[in-house]
Design a protein around this nucleic acid. Structure first.
Length: 857
RNA sequence: GCCCGAGUGGCGGAAUUGGUAGACGCUGCGGACUUAAAAUCCGUUUCCAGUAAUGGAGUGAGGGUUCAAGUCCCUCCUCGGGCACCA
C-alpha cells in the first residue's frame, strides 16, 4: 500500500458537505413544481433534555434514504423536521427549578437540531415547525374551535387518573399497572371537569378507513381492536310490576332463552327503582363499595365476581319468564346500555357468577362437535338451538337475525352496533400545553350571544356546552378565530393548584375577563369594563390540550409552514397532499395514529382537505437494544450516544450501520465491532476511488464487473423500494470487494457505485464524486438503471441432484437444452456412483438451475 | 386466558413463485507485509467422523405433502408484542 495514501478524513468531509448543502439550499422542497411530489415524514421527536438517542436516527436515516433516492428518481421531495415540544418533562423541570418551560424547550430544541444536522439529513430546514410556537398552536386551537362548533367537544365530570406525586392528571395511556408511566408513581381516581372530544362519532369511519391503508397488519389490527366494533341487539326487558323497561345490549340474541338472570352496573340510573326495600341497605353498601374501587381494583379482581340481588324481576320478552335482576360491578356502565342479560351456559363470566351465587344454568345451544348435549359449559361456539321453543333445531348463527326481526316486530328490541372506543378526554390540568380557547359565561349572556349580530353567532354548537361551578351552570363560548392564538400567560408557579386544576386557574388577571359578545374580544377584569352593552364578565377555560393535539395535524403544517391565513393553503394541500411515507415507533400504533386520523378525517369532512386519510403508507422501525441485548437505559449503562459514534466513525458510518444492523422493523442489538465493519467498507470505497492507477476511462469492459455492477444496481434499487436496506448494503459490499480484487475498472463503474451509496452515506459519496470529476452535487444525478441483459452469464452452472441431494455440478452454455444437460449429468462420476444398480423413476430439470434424478433401489 | 409475530452457525443476519442453506458483516484461528505495531491484504470458520479424498447430519421439536421443504400443511415448545370482565 502506497505510503502517501489519502486518509478518509470523515470529520472534514462531513463538515464540508453539510455546509455545502446548507449554503446551496440543496434540499429545499418546491411548492410550485412541475415535478411529481414525494413527501417522506418522520414522527417528530419530543426534544428531551437527554438529547438524541441512538434509536432516533434509525427511522430518520430510513426516511432520508428514501427521500434522497426519490429525489434521484426525479421527484420533488419534501423531508421535513420539527418538534413536538409541549409535554410533561419540561413542566416537571419548571416545577423543580422555576425555569420557564419555553427556555428548557428552546435549549433542548437547539441541541436536537444540532445533533440531527450532524447526521446529514436531506431536510428542508426552512420548514421546521414547533408545536409550542404560538404561530403553530394558533391552528391547533383553530381546529379545536371547529370541533367545538360542530358539537364534537363537550365538558363532563370524568373519573381520571390523578397522580399525587406529579400533581397532575394522567391519561389512561400514561398509566401502566396502576403507576404513572413517567416516574412510576402511584395514581388514584378523581372526578374532575374535563373537556372531551366525541371521537366515538367517528368510530365507523375510522374503522372502515383502515382497509385502504398500506400499514403494518399488526397496527391495523390494534386499531380495529381498540375501536372494538360489535354487532348485536338491544333487547327490552319489562320490569315486573313497573312501567319501566330495562334495555340490555347483547351480541348473542340467539341465547335469549338461556338468560337466567340480569345484571345492571352499580352506576345504572334505574338501580334505585329496582331495589326492593328489604334489599336497600345491602345494595347501597355494595354500590358504595364498588364506587370506591378503582378500575385497577376491578381489573385485579377480574376473576373474583361480586354482586347483590336487587329483589326485582324482569320479564323475558321472548317467553315471558321472570328473571331476577342483580347488580354487579363486572358490568360496566360505560359500555352498551350498562345492563346485560346473563346467559351462564354460554358466557364464561356469567357462568362464573352463576356458579358462585347458585343461579340456574340453562343450555340453549348444542355443540355438534361434541356429539352430546352434555358437552362442557360454558360453551360460546356455534351450534344448534335447543330449549328455545319454536327456534329449536335452527342454526344458532342464523337464528340471531330471526330473533332480532321477531323482537323488532313486537317492538321489544332492535339490531344494534356497539364500539369499545370511548370519547377522548382532551383536557390536561397543566401549564405547558395549548390553552383551550373557550370562555365561560352565564346562561343569560350565552342566550344573548346568539341574539347579538356578531362573530360568535355561527361558531356556537347547536347544543350548548355547559358545566357546573359553585352551584351555577356556566355556558361555554368560543373565542373567534381572529382572537387566536390564545397565548399561554406568564405564571409564577408551575405547580398545579391543589384542587387538581391547572396552574392557569391561579392567575386571576388572565382567568377573569371582560368578554365582548359581538367581537369576541377580551380584556382582563382588572381593566375597567369597556363601553358597550355586549361586554360581559367571563372566565377562561383553564385546562390545556394534551400533547397529542399538536401531533394530530403537524403533517399538514410542513406543507405550508409559514401561512398566517390558514393552516394550509388549498394550492399547497392540493399539490403535496399527505405523506407518501410515514415512519415511527410502533408504540404509537393506536393513540397518536388514531387521533391524527380522527382530526384529519374531520378536516376532510369540513372541506379543508382533499383526502380523508393522513398516512397512506406507514412503517415502524424496530428498537435498537444495547450491546448486551437489553433495552438501552442509563441505569444499566448500555446507552450509546450518537455524538460519540459520529466523532469516532463519522455520520456516514452511523447511518450505514444503523441500516446494516438487520431488518428495519426488527428489534436488534447495537454492536461496536459491527460499526467498525461498515466503517471499513467506507474506507475501502474511499481507497478504491483514490487508487488512480486502477482507473480506466470510457465504458466498463470487464464482463464480470459489468454483471456485478448491474446486479448491484438492480438489487439496491429493489431493496430501497422494499425498505430492506441491510440487503442493499450487503450488495454494495460485494461490488466493493470485487472492485478491490480486479486489476482495473472504469471510473464510470466507481461513479455508479457512488450514486448507489449516496442515499446511505451521502457525505462520502459527494466527496468522491467530486474527486472523480463528477459535476455539481451527486444529489442532482439521476438514479442508475440496471441493464437486465448484462445480468445473464454466458455460462450457467447446473446443479446435479440424486434424490434431492447435491451430487455434482456442471458448466453449460446459457442456451444448452435439457437433453444435453441430462446426458452430461448422468455421466458425472459422482452422480453415476449414486445411480448404480438403481432405477431412475423420474428426471426433473429446472431450467438454468438444476437436474434431479429420483431413483429407487 | 385470547389474538398476532418470530425461532437459521460462536454473533447480527442472507436465501425469487418450494429448487445448491449459511450471502454480507462481526468474532475466532492461520498467514503475508512490518524492526515492531497500526492499517491493509490472503486463507479458514455449521456440526460429527476421517490425515485426506469423502461421507453423514443440519434452519426450535415431532409428524406430513413433494422428485425436492428454512419456505407449504398438522401438533407441540420457547421467546417477543398487543388485548384482557366491552356482554
Amino acid at each position: 500500500m502506497a505510503k502517501d495514501e489519502i486518509i478518509y478524513d470523515f470529520i472534514a468531509i462531513e463538515r464540508k458537505w453539510q455546509e455545502f448543502w446548507e449554503k446551496e439550499n440543496t434540499f429545499k422542497a418546491e411548492d410550485n413544481s412541475q415535478k411529481p411530489k414525494y413527501y417522506a415524514l418522520d414522527m417528530f421527536p419530543y426534544p428531551s433534555g437527554a438529547g438524541l438517542h441512538i434509536g432516533h436516527p434509525e427511522g430518520y436515516v430510513a426516511s432520508d434514504i428514501i427521500a434522497r433516492y426519490k429525489k434521484a428518481c426525479g421527484f420533488n421531495v419534501l423531508h421535513p423536521m420539527g418538534w413536538d415540544a409541549f409535554g410533561l418533562p419540561a413542566e416537571q423541570y419548571a416545577i423543580k427549578t422555576g425555569t420557564h418551560p419555553s427556555l428548557t424547550t428552546q435549549t433542548n430544541v437547539d441541541n436536537f437540531r444540532r445533533q440531527i444536522k450532524s447526521i446529514g439529513f436531506a431536510i428542508d430546514w426552512e420548514r421546521e415547525i414547533n408545536t409550542t410556537d404560538p404561530s403553530y398552536y394558533q391552528w391547533t386551537q383553530w381546529i379545536f374551535l371547529k370541533l367545538f362548533q360542530r358539537g364534537l367537544a363537550y365538558v363532563d365530570e370524568k373519573p381520571v387518573w390523578w397522580c399525587p406525586n406529579l400533581r397532575a392528571v394522567l391519561a389512561n395511556e400514561e398509566v401502566v399497572d396502576g403507576k404513572s408511566e413517567v416516574g412510576n408513581h402511584p395514581v388514584e381516581r378523581r372526578n374532575l371537569r374535563q373537556v372531551v372530544l366525541r371521537i366515538t362519532s367517528y368510530a365507523e369511519k375510522l374503522l372502515q378507513g383502515l382497509d385502504d391503508l398500506d400499514w403494518p397488519d399488526s397496527t391495523k389490527r390494534q386499531q380495529k381492536a381498540w375501536i372494538g366494533r360489535s354487532e348485536g341487539a338491544e333487547v327490552e326487558f319489562p320490569i315486573d310490576g313497573q312501567d319501566d323497561t330495562l334495555t340490555v345490549y347483547t351480541t348473542r340474541p340467539d341465547t335469549l332463552f338461556g338468560a337466567t338472570y340480569m345484571v345492571i352496573a352499580p352506576e345504572h340510573p334505574l338501580l334505585e327503582k329496582l331495589v326492593n326495600s328489604p334489599k336497600k341497605e345491602e345494595v347501597n353498601n355494595y354500590v358504595q363499595m364498588a364506587a370506591k374501587k378503582s378500575d385497577l381494583d376491578r381489573t385485579d379482581l377480574a376473576k373474583n365476581k361480586s354482586g347483590v340481588f336487587t329483589g326485582s324481576y324482569c320479564i323475558n320478552p321472548i317467553n315471558g319468564e321472570r328473571i331476577p335482576v342483580w347488580v354487579a360491578d363486572y358490568v360496566l356502565i360505560s359500555y352498551g346500555t350498562g345492563a346485560i342479560m346473563a346467559v351462564p351456559a354460554h358466557d364464561e363470566r356469567d357462568y362464573e357468577f352463576a356458579k358462585k351465587f347458585g343461579i340456574e344454568i340453562k343450555r340453549v345451544i348444542a355443540n355438534l362437535n361434541e356429539c352430546s348435549e352434555k358437552s362442557k359449559l360454558p360453551y360460546s361456539g356455534d351450534g344448534v338451538m335447543i330449549n328455545s321453543n319454536e327456534y329449536d333445531g335452527m342454526e344458532a348463527s342464523a337464528c340471531k337475525e330471526k330473533i332480532i326481526a321477531d323482537l323488532e316486530a313486537k317492538a321489544m328490541g332492535k339490531g344494534a352496533v356497539n364500539y369499545k372506543l370511548r370519547d377522548w378526554i382532551f383536557s390536561r390540568q397543566r401549564y405547558w400545553g395549548e390553552p383551550i380557547p373557550l370562555v365561560w359565561v352565564s346562561e343569560a349572556d350565552y342566550e344573548n350571544s346568539k341574539a347579538v349580530d356578531g362573530v360568535l353567532k355561527n361558531l356556537i354548537p347547536e347544543d350548548p356546552v355547559t358545566t357546573n361551578k359553585d352551584g351555577h351552570t356556566l355556558y361555554a363560548l368560543p373565542l373567534p378565530p381572529t382572537e387566536l392564538p390564545l397565548k399561554l400567560p406568564e405564571v409564577e408557579n408551575y405547580q398545579p393548584s391543589g384542587t387538581g386544576e391547572s396552574p392557569l386557574a391561579t392567575i386571576s388577571d388572565w382567568l377573569e375577563i371582560w368578554f365582548d359578545l359581538e367581537s369576541g374580544k377580551s380584556i382582563s377584569h382588572k381593566e375597567p369594563k369597556p363601553d358597550g352593552k355586549n361586554w360581559v364578565p367571563a372566565t377562561r377555560e383553564t385546562n390545556t390540550m394534551p400533547q397529542w393535539a399538536g401531533s394530530c395535524w403537524y403533517h399538514l403544517r410542513y406543507i405550508d409552514p409559514k401561512n398566517s391565513h390558514s393552516l394550509v393553503s388549498r394550492e399547497n394541500e392540493a399539490y403535496w397532499g399527505g405523506p407518501d411515507f410515514y415512519i415511527g415507533g410502533a408504540e404509537h400504533a393506536v393513540l397518536h395514529l388514531l387521533y391524527a386520523r380522527f382530526w384529519h378525517r374531520f378536516l376532510y369532512d369540513e372541506g379543508v382537505l382533499t383526502n380523508p386519510e393522513p398516512y397512506k403508507k406507514l412503517f415502524h422501525q424496530g428498537l435498537i437494544l444495547g450491546e448486551d441485548g437489553n433495552k438501552m437505559s442509563k441505569s444499566i449503562g448500555n446507552v450509546v450516544n450518537p455524538d460519540v459514534v459520529i466523532d469516532a466513525y463519522g455520520a456516514d458510518s452511523l447511518r450505514l450501520f444503523e441500516m446494516f444492523l438487520g431488518p428495519l422493523e426488527a428489534v436488534k442489538p447495537w454492536s461496536e465491532k459491527g460499526i467498525e465493519g461498515v466503517h471499513r467498507f467506507l474506507r475501502k470505497v474511499h481507497r478504491e476511488c483514490h487508487n488512480a492507477s486502477k482507473h480506466c476511462d470510457g465504458e466498463e469492459t470487464n464482463k464480470e464487473t459489468l454483471r456485478i455492477l448491474h446486479e448491484t444496481i438492480l438489487k439496491v434499487t429493489e431493496s430501497i423500494e422494499d425498505l430492506r436496506f441491510n440487503v442493499a448494503i450487503s450488495q454494495m459490499m460485494i461490488l466493493g470487494n470485487h472492485l478491490q480484487k480486479v486489476d482495473s475498472y472504469s471510473v464510470n463503474t466507481a461513479k455508479k457505485l457512488l450514486q448507489l451509496l449516496a442515499p446511505f452515506a451521502p457525505h462520502l459519496a459527494e466527496e468522491l464524486w467530486e474527486e472523480l470529476g463528477g459535476i455539481s452535487s451527486i444529489v442532482n444525478e439521476s438514479w442508475p438503471k440496471a441493464k437486465k441483459e448484462l445480468l445473464v452469464n454466458e455460462e450457467i452452472t447446473i446443479v446435479f441432484q440424486v434424490n434431492g441431494k447435491l451430487r455434482g455440478q456442471g458448466q453449460f452454455p446459457k442456451d444448452a437444452d435439457k437433453n444435453t444437460i441430462l446426458t452430461v449429468a448422468k455421466q458425472d462420476e459422482k452422480v453415476m456412483s449414486f445411480l448404480e444398480n438403481k432405477e431412475i423413476v423420474k428426471e426433473i430439470y429446472v431450467p438454468g438451475k438444476l437436474v434431479n434424478f429420483a431413483v429407487k433401489p
